[in-house]
Simulated scan of single mutants.
Amino acid sequence: MTKSTRRPIEAEEFLTALQDLPPHALTACPEWTVHDTGAHLAGIYEEVARHVQAYAAGAPLTSTRSFEEREAPFRELSASELLRTVDREEQRMRQEVHAVIDAEPDATLWWTGRWMRVDAFLSHLRNECAIHRWDMCGDDETNMKLLQQFDLFKHAVTNIGPKPLCARGINKYGAELSGLSARIRTDGLPDLHITIDGTVPTMELVDPTGEPAISGDQEARLLLLWGRSPTPATRLQATGPHDTVLRLRRLLSGY
């Protein structure tokens, strides 16, 4: 049997924030209101369920719909309708994932141009809920607890990976970042080592050695990885050469 199918705390807290905040309030994502953020989560829940259902039926999908394609219908819903939809789609996604991994624990499917373990979607959506709750609520006590979890950071590094997390930085700065090799450190945890070969980024978790480019608490480090800045930003310290820190921050410009 798989672990409990109970809704994770990250999803619970995201739904609570979506319910409590004005739908047209701005968020830390410049393009999104609270309502847009809800539509984003509804879209990804539906898309994951669609892929997992197709896999279970023996007809796996070979492409993933764009953000715009899957989110547009949800943005048209009222705030109350959207809240109910996110609630429903989260439950459906979780049920579909557990149905597959109960039968095939190592199941893997094609997702946004890479292979993804089906069970990894559970951590992936916990990450999405925690990060986007931060976009709506900032550095409150709840987000401090959620984003300190190392397993969310590990999932971002090993399952989401450098291609999407560095996409905006690579697209904007390209060859200017070539040759970058830098570590981001949180005391007591593995370093995140990031390198750039040409315009191809790599990320790995490694034992702490040498001088990091940037150091900070675990919540701040996860936010940096997702192209965000904690409050206050001074929770992150530039401990390496200025040029290295500058290029690293440019690289981590967001999804």
Score class of each variant (00 low, 15 high):
T2V: 14
T5M: 12
R6T: 15
A17E: 04
L21W: 10
A25I: 02
L26Q: 13
E31R: 12
W32F: 15
H35I: 01
H35Y: 02
H35E: 00
T37E: 05
A39N: 01
G43S: 04
I44L: 14
E46P: 00
E46D: 13
A49T: 14
H51D: 06
A59D: 13
T62N: 09
R70P: 00
E71M: 02
P73C: 03
S78Q: 01
S80D: 10
D87N: 12
Q95M: 06
V100F: 04
T108R: 15
L109G: 06
W110A: 06
W111L: 11
G113M: 13
A120L: 14
F121D: 04
R126P: 07
E128V: 11
A130C: 12
R133K: 13
W134P: 10
D140H: 11
E141I: 09
T142F: 03
L147V: 09
F150H: 13
K154V: 07
K154A: 12
V157N: 07
T158P: 01
A167N: 08
I170A: 09
Y173H: 15
E204K: 06
E204P: 00
V206G: 02
V206H: 02
V206Q: 02
E211G: 03
G216Q: 09
Q218V: 03
L222D: 04
T231Q: 15
T231L: 12
A233R: 14
L236P: 04
A238R: 15
G240K: 09
D243V: 10
D243N: 15
